[in-house]
C-alpha cells in the first residue's frame, strides 16, 4: 500500500516536472505543474518520516514561492507567447543528450537496494526533534540564514524598486 502510494506520488512529481519544462507557451500552467510536483514531494517526505519538512515543503514551496512566481507573471502581464524557443537547436540537443546521459550513468551506479533503513527513535522528523537540533547543534547556521534572508530582502526591494530621482 505504502509502496504503491509512494510510486503514485513519484509519478505525479515526474509528470509535474515534465509538464513545467515541456509547456512552451503557458508559464502559468507550467507553474501549476510545478505545484503538483511540490505537493507530491511533500507527501513523499511524510512517507519518509520527515513530517516537519513535508509540511514546510507545502507551506513554503507550494504556498509561497510558486505564488510569488505567479505574481511576477501577472505583474509583467505575460500572456501566452512563444519566445522563439526554436533557436539554437544544436545546443539544446546537446544539453538534452548530456542530461539524459548523466541520468543514465547515475541510475546505473545507484545500487539496486540499500541496506535496511536504520531504526528510528520515537518522534523522528517531528517538529520537536528537528527543532531541538536546529537550535542546538546548528544554531550558527540558523542565525546565518537569517542574515541571508535579510540580505535577500533588501536586495529584492532595491532591485524591483522604481527609481524616483529621475535617473
Amino acid at each position: 500500500m505504502n509502496e504503491l502510494l509512494f510510486q503514485l506520488f513519484g509519478a505525479i512529481a515526474v509528470a509535474g516536472a515534465l509538464g513545467m519544462v515541456l509547456n512552451l507557451r503557458n508559464v502559468v500552467a507550467g507553474a501549476l505543474s510545478l505545484v503538483a510536483t511540490m505537493v507530491a514531494l511533500g507527501a513523499i517526505y511524510v512517507m519518509l518520516e520527515a513530517y516537519l519538512v513535508g509540511v514546510l515543503q507545502i507551506l513554503v514551496y507550494a504556498g509561497a514561492i510558486v505564488v510569488v512566481f505567479l505574481f511576477v507573471v501577472m505583474l509583467l502581464n505575460l500572456r501566452d507567447q512563444a519566445l522563439g524557443e526554436g533557436r539554437q537547436w544544436f545546443t539544446k540537443t546537446v544539453a538534452v543528450l548530456a542530461g539524459v546521459g548523466v541520468l543514465v550513468l547515475f541510475l546505473g551506479v545507484l545500487p539496486a537496494a540499500f541496506s535496511a533503513p536504520a531504526d528510528l527513535e520515537a518522534g523522528f522528523g517531528g517538529y520537536r526533534h528537528v527543532g531541538a537540533l536546529l537550535f542546538t547543534d546548528y544554531v550558527l547556521a540558523f542565525e546565518v540564514t537569517s542574515l541571508l534572508l535579510l540580505a535577500a530582502m533588501v536586495g529584492a526591494v532595491i532591485l524591483a524598486k522604481r527609481r524616483t530621482d529621475g535617473s
Binding site: 511533500g42 516537519l52 509540511v55 514546510l56 507545502i58 507551506l59 507550494a62 504556498g63
Partner: peptide, 8 residues
C-alpha cells in the same frame, strides 16, 4: 502546521 499548509 497542517492547517497553515492547507490554508496556503
Amino acid at each position: 502546521l497542517y492547517v497553515f499548509a492547507v490554508g496556503s
